[in-house]
Design a binder for these strands. Structure first.
Lengths: 164, 164
DNA sequence: AGCAAACATTTTATGTTTAAAATATTGATC
DNA sequence: GATCAATATTTTAAACATAAAATGTTTGCT
């Protein structure tokens, strides 16, 4: 095991110099935080359930839609490329956690759903996942939570504008 | 959770339940936001300077340390694995943007620095980068900015505790 | 019907990222 | 001074990610 950054955590954010702008400082802190949590969740999923974050993510999307989703839907919701979804889905299918069946009336598309085994497996994982996230983010007050949610919504809108 | 009584009050149960959902919602929003910005910056760096985000990040770490950094320092500060830094540094070195020289007194380590060309190149990119970040995050009020910075610092601490 | 454009997915090539094993060096201890 | 653990880096294998080309399918248009 390599165990990076286990000791004294020197990261993006703590090395920022005074000359850097407010926005950059916020961005680096945002990035650091997200990376830390993502790394933690990835490690937990791996050690507890021997699954990767992208595979968990795909299953989570399906768990919200009992009717199933097409590959394209998954690509959109997971915000990754179609080719990527193909690969991840192929693995989950080979493990028997999802199934891909033809859609009647459209022979281009597949309808992807969780198998019975996939549902059971996901239920276990989701409970643990929720607890891990709560450990990381549960310490915020209601007010802090509200501020964060509002600010993030605004940021999301602004990035959308910029991309246009 | 403590769960002292045999019959748990419904509102306590549901409060916990709700709290957990809250944390997950915040996490998903945080992740989405960060990914959106990261994707934007990655695209801009690619189209404007034909460089990837990890390469830019490595150069940014070096730009802050005129004395240079070892590969291990870089790994820690970039929060990526050592093997990853090896690959990225090899590319930047072959492009003449960084140099890696032996450290006197420690034949294991390398001292990595920006070359003259690397400094010039980074200066250009950093200016554009700051503007792109400001486009995404500059719309927040001072108060919102402060709330975000405080909340993120707390989250960072909590994740650190959890990892221990 | 014929044909072109759009759609849904997979394949391919390339590159990033990680974990783990491998290599080599250093320092401490006996 | 021999040995062993810690350190610094590279290499390897597997998973993930993207863009772009390829493969089929559907729809609309004439």
């Amino acid at each position: 095991m390599e165990s990076i950054g286990v000791q004294e955590p020197i990261d993006h954010e703590s090395r920022v110099e005074q000359g850097d702008h407010k926005a950059v400082r916020l961005w680096l802190r945002l990035l650091t935080c997200t990376n830390l949590i993502e790394r933690h969740l990835r490690g937990q999923l791996r050690s507890e359930f021997d699954i990767t974050l992208p595979r968990f993510d795909l299953m989570a999307q399906l768990a919200r839609e009992s009717e199933g989703l097409t590959m394209g839907d998954l690509s959109q919701r997971m915000m990754v490329s179609g080719g990527n979804v193909s690969g991840i889905a192929a693995q989950l299918e080979s493990e028997g956690l999802i199934s891909r069946e033809p859609v009647q009336g459209n022979r281009r598309a597949f309808c992807v759903t969780l198998t019975r085994a996939g549902q059971a497996r996901f239920a276990e994982m989701a409970e643990a996942h929720e607890a891990w996230v709560a450990e990381c983010l549960g310490g915020l007050s209601d007010s802090e939570y509200g501020h964060m949610m509002r600010a993030l919504r605004q940021i999301k809108l602004e990035v959308g504008e910029v991309e246009r």
